[in-house]
Design a protein around this nucleic acid. Sequence first.
DNA 1: CTAATTAAGGATATAAAGGTCCGAAAATCT
DNA 2: AGATTTTCGGACCTTTATATCCTTAATTAG
Lengths: 141, 141
Amino acid sequence: MFSKACEYALKIMIYLCTVQEEGKLAGLKDISNANGSPEAYTAKILQQLVKNGLLQSHRGPTGGFKVSDRPITLLEVVVAIDGESIVKDCVLGLRECSSARPCPVHDKFVAIRDHLKGVLNTTYLTDIKSGVIEGNRFLKL
Amino acid sequence: MFSKACEYALKIMIYLCTVQEEGKLAGLKDISNANGSPEAYTAKILQQLVKNGLLQSHRGPTGGFKVSDRPITLLEVVVAIDGESIVKDCVLGLRECSSARPCPVHDKFVAIRDHLKGVLNTTYLTDIKSGVIEGNRFLKL
DNA sequence: CTAATTAAGGATATAAAGGTCCGAAAATCT
DNA sequence: AGATTTTCGGACCTTTATATCCTTAATTAG
């Protein structure tokens, strides 16, 4: 469904939300540790999230990452890493696929995609962080 | 969503259904042509569909491929090529993710996945071939 | 039987995703 | 200022997906 990089990105964002008490920053080691993602690869993903304005970073000692100070949806995270293909492209790979010129499964998948897009677009990071903080939702294993 | 190979496989199966008048066989060239997939790669996918019992093949002149003579769902095709990951694995990549030990988005995605699985599991190739035959659903471009 | 045709299957090439390494740049602390 | 810590960014390696090539096996027609 999502690329590995995108899976990591979502976990990173959720984790950073849970740590974000009093504007504290979390470092790379901390982050990759918390969601079980390889450190060097995690660094790349963090960079990309910063570039896309979803995270803010600060270098040097006491440096690290924090979530940008505004509501962020799951969709924004997914699009930042995987692009819009998951909510746009034809499931059979047709370049042109619309109700005017549909592929054989167009209608069926429009419904599924709308469902997916709806969830991604209305679920905010702040909505889901509490479960992790309370310890009954997990980011690892 | 699906791998390229799986996209091809779905188109192959649908196409073969539309050609399947009077038990006629379709050859590799014909098939790859009809859905715009590279010939040699299409051959590999056809082999895999035969191995999985979704197609039957026949060699030699007048040889080719035909859809196995029983109702086949989209899910069977997807699973034959991509495995069950799309309907089984955690979207955040957790090895263990269940209602007993859920990831932060478990509930939201259970609903989406059930929707997807439902469509794949109840849509038969015969249900969708008519649109292609009538010429108002397309497999190419 | 021979030639022609078609799928099967192994080997190999190419592209993309996933992942690592290391030096440079920025910030902090002493 | 100098040493240290941490992110940035480029180069590189590994694995998987995508795609091609070519030989072999089966089948049919002449």
